[in-house]
């Protein structure tokens, strides 16, 4: 059986809220290492990969592999019934028809319980190779969100170029062109505002802004975001969570002329 207790229901609420417009029905794969989710969007352009490690829960118990097939709109309806500060416990039997969610208020004796009916989801699982990326950019997540939103006003696509001088986000559209360039930057007092660029070779790739703006819905999960790029492979956008848990998005590049 599965029994996993999260200190704050808000974490799962934010994760599901961030991905629910990209993917609808997902398997939450539970085993002794934690709760994982991998799903492509309908057009097979983007991939969501979430890992909530066992250490993110206290306690965490999962005796055997259980796939919980859940519709994210349904899950969100139930998660909205939790207060942000509530303690959340997920429970399921070994061959479950439902997943049980219990919300406990830490301040009162209120206890609420919900069951969500599970679905059989036949999902393709993709193997994501370990990649040494040519460029890794760590920056404030709010800054990345702002750049994507700003450039989307002008164009459908953004070119991301990383060189030793910095990282340039540029676009061109019907009304004109736009570009934002960031250089490595260290703020001793506010390290969350740092921009770090680790580069082994220059990279230039083009991506759809619609997807990037969608990924940025995860900005509330982490003050920083990591962008990993190599020429001609999907972009990795990673929001790190506590206890080495993460929410990752992969986006296939636009290629050709």
């Amino acid at each position: 059986m599965l029994e996993a207790r999260l200190e704050q229901a808000n974490l799962l609420k934010k994760v599901v809220d961030a991905i629910k417009d990209l993917v609808q029905d997902c398997n939450f794969d539970c085993n002794d290492s934690g709760v994982a989710l991998q799903a492509m969007d309908n057009s097979h352009v983007a991939l969501v990969s979430m890992m909530l490690k066992a250490e993110s829960f206290s306690p965490f118990r999962c005796d055997r592999n259980i796939a919980l097939g859940i519709n994210l709109t349904s899950l969100m309806k139930v998660l909205r019934c939790a207060q942000n500060e509530d303690i959340l416990t997920l429970k399921a039997e070994d061959a479950p028809d439902v997943v049980n969610l219990v919300f406990e208020s830490s301040e009162s004796d209120r206890l609420s319980e919900y069951d969500i009916k599970l679905m059989d989801i036949d999902q393709e699982h993709l193997g994501i190779p370990e990649t040494e990326y040519a460029a890794t950019i760590t920056m404030p997540s709010a800054e990345f969100q702002r750049i994507c939103r700003d450039l989307m006003a002008l164009s459908e696509s953004v070119a991301i170029e990383a060189t030793k001088d910095g990282v340039k986000f540029s676009c061109s559209g019907d009304i004109g062109n736009g570009a934002v360039t960031l250089r490595s930057h260290t703020n001793v007092e506010k390290p969350d505002l740092n921009v770090e660029i680790a580069l082994s070779e220059p990279v230039a790739l083009t991506f759809s802004l619609k997807y990037l703006v969608n990924f940025c819905k995860a900005s509330g999960l982490s003050s920083t975001v990591k962008l990993c790029l190599s020429n001609e492979v999907p972009l990795l956008v990673e929001y790190g969570l506590a206890s080495n848990s993460y929410l990752r998005f992969y986006l296939a590049p636009k290629i050709g002329d």
């Binding site: 097979h44 991939l47 993709l126 193997g127 083009t206 986006l251 296939a252 002329d257």
Partner: peptide, 14 residues
Amino acid sequence: SKNQTSIAGFFKKH
């Protein structure tokens, strides 16, 4: 203009 590639083309199916 550039063409959108598919994520499944980069990552192998299990």
